[in-house]
């Protein structure tokens, strides 16, 4: 190999295949009988789950149930021990890193940054996968709209490192939205947020689903899941304990069982939205 070839290979930018539009209800990501061990511990045990366009799918369950691991498997971060993960109809390993980035965006649990980039620079990073494609023209609007949606526009010129935890989380979400993929995988996007911004984030999820995207969101707040998700998958001990519309899956029996704590489910007197509360002693 000549030096030129070595450099071309190292620098090599293989051709990418931008994703095609999907029909409503199309399966964008799917886990089939997925089992996975981290170290000695089995974290996922025969999990099957399909993620469809036009739908907000909430992953709920107690700590250590395997929610984040399932999300990581669906985002092709982890290779599964048995079973199969399909993304956009192809086994996850069959996509190049770049092609995956055009198909799914991932919000990690914690937003970190090694150098003091500004907020608008961070959000702009979400456009990186589209460099050199026709969608590059959308860069400016995608960034502006993502920042407006997450209400971070007014600290666009500030350093990311100087933001509060909740602000960082919104900037990270903004970066994910700017990536404009049809599959969004969000790991606890509401964890660091105040009440108003929790509602805002799930409203954004709804809007993306309505626009034809598929959204998977890991949440701990069952009330949020009940109010905003089209479908809820309850994980417990690495298995799917329930999968369906909130009213069918979020039942007192199932929840009391998986959380090992009595749970009551009430309907809001005015709206009928499910209210899910742990049973507490009167004081």
């Amino acid at each position: 190999m000549t030096i030129d070839q070595v450099i071309t290979r190292l620098l090599g930018n293989r051709a990418v295949s931008p994703p095609k539009p999907h029909a409503p209800g199309a399966v964008l990501a799917e886990a089939r009988e997925v089992s996975l061990r981290l170290g000695e511990r089995p974290v996922l045990d025969g999990v099957s789950l399909a993620v469809r366009t036009g739908e907000v799918l909430a992953l709920v369950g107690p700590n250590g149930a395997g929610k984040s691991t399932l999300l990581a498997a669906l985002s092709a971060d982890l290779t599964v021990d048995s079973g199969e993960v399909l993304i956009d109809g192809r086994p996850a390993a069959g996509w190049s890193t770049r092609d995956l980035a055009l198909r799914r965006s991932v919000l990690p649990q914690a937003a970190t940054l090694s150098f003091p980039f500004l907020v608008d620079e961070v959000v702009r990073m979400g456009r990186a996968p589209w460099a050199g494609t026709a969608a590059e023209d959308e860069d400016e609007t995608a960034v502006a709209e993502a920042m407006a949606a997450t209400e971070v526009t007014r600290f666009a010129a500030r350093s990311f490192s100087a933001l509060s935890g909740g602000e960082k989380a919104r900037v990270a979400l903004s970066r994910v939205l700017a990536q404009r993929t049809s599959l969004l995988l969000l790991d606890e996007p509401t964890a660091a947020l105040d009440l108003r911004h929790q509602e805002l984030v799930l409203t954004i999820c709804r809007e993306r689903a309505a626009a034809g995207d598929a959204v998977v969101v890991v949440v701990h707040d069952l009330g949020l899941a009940a109010a905003y998700a089209d479908r809820v998958a309850v994980l417990a001990g690495g298995r799917i304990a329930g999968d369906g519309p909130p009213a069918e899956t979020l039942t007192p029996e199932l929840l009391s069982d998986v959380y090992h704590h009595p749970v009551e489910v009430l309907a809001h007197p005015d709206t009928g939205v499910l209210l899910i509360l742990p049973v507490r002693q009167a004081r």
């Binding site: 620098l11 971060d77 890193t97 980035a101 991932v106 970190t112 980039f117 990073m125 990186a128």
Partner: peptide, 28 residues
């Protein structure tokens, strides 16, 4: 060769996994 990696290095500041989610082949 160095400047060619600039944009990818920016993404790497987000961490390895987020960089990979944005299409960077981190190992390479």
């Amino acid at each position: 060769a160095a400047p060619w990696y600039a944009r990818k290095l920016d993404l790497l500041a987000l961490g390895e996994k987020p960089a990979r989610h944005l299409g960077v082949d981190v190992e390479r």
